[in-house]
Simulated assay, not measured.
Amino acid sequence: MTTDDGYRRGRHVVSALHVHLVFVTKYRRGVFNAEMIERCEQIMRDVCDDFGALLIEFNGEDDHVHLLIEYPPKVAVSTLVNSLKGVSARLLRSEFTDRVNRHSMRGHFWSPSYFTVSASGAPLSVLREYIEGQRHPA
């Protein structure tokens, strides 16, 4: 994992890879409430653990979520994104059937697209503040 100096050390690699991801619900439907945001965070933490990644920061609004993830160099961001969206969609739809109307979202939870940016340009403290500042649904 990460050491005190902020670097991830492996047998043949030293890395500090961070990615800022944004996932939007299908048709930007406002389906999230506070309980769903908390469950979504837990699901995404578990998926990150499976990949050897670390979910540093998570927050969202009623129609999208922001993630700040530290990941090992052997993980492709696209593969991580597919698992994060697939697992979370399946579990959230099954656990919150009253909030997620499958018919109005045409069977999908997330929009097929996503936003990703390398977090090396801005200081992580600035990104963390930005994500913490998102309006949390009531």
Rank of each mutant, 00 (worst) to 15 (best):
N101V: 00
D4I: 09
F32P: 02
S125D: 14
M105F: 05
L84W: 10
E57S: 10
R28E: 09
T25V: 09
D46R: 13
R93C: 14
I69P: 00
A89M: 03
R39T: 12
L84S: 01
A76C: 11
I131H: 00
R135A: 14
V65W: 07
G6W: 06
A16R: 13
P137H: 04
P137L: 04
H108W: 08
V100T: 00
D4L: 14
M36H: 03
D63C: 06
E38I: 01
G30Q: 14
H18R: 06
D62L: 07
F58K: 01
S125C: 10
V22K: 08
D50H: 11
V31H: 11
F115P: 01
P112Q: 14
T3L: 11
I131W: 04
Y27L: 06
D62Q: 13
R106H: 14
R90M: 07
A119Y: 04
D49E: 15
S104Q: 13
V87G: 04
G86P: 04
V47Y: 02
K26C: 07
D46C: 04
H20I: 02
N101T: 00
L127K: 03
Q42K: 07
L124H: 02
H103K: 14
G107D: 09
R8G: 11
S113D: 12
Y130V: 08
R106M: 05
A138M: 09
R135M: 12
S15D: 06
G30E: 15
P112A: 05
Y27K: 09
H66K: 10
T79M: 13
L68C: 07
Y27C: 08
P123E: 15
R106F: 11
P73N: 09
I56C: 12
L84P: 01
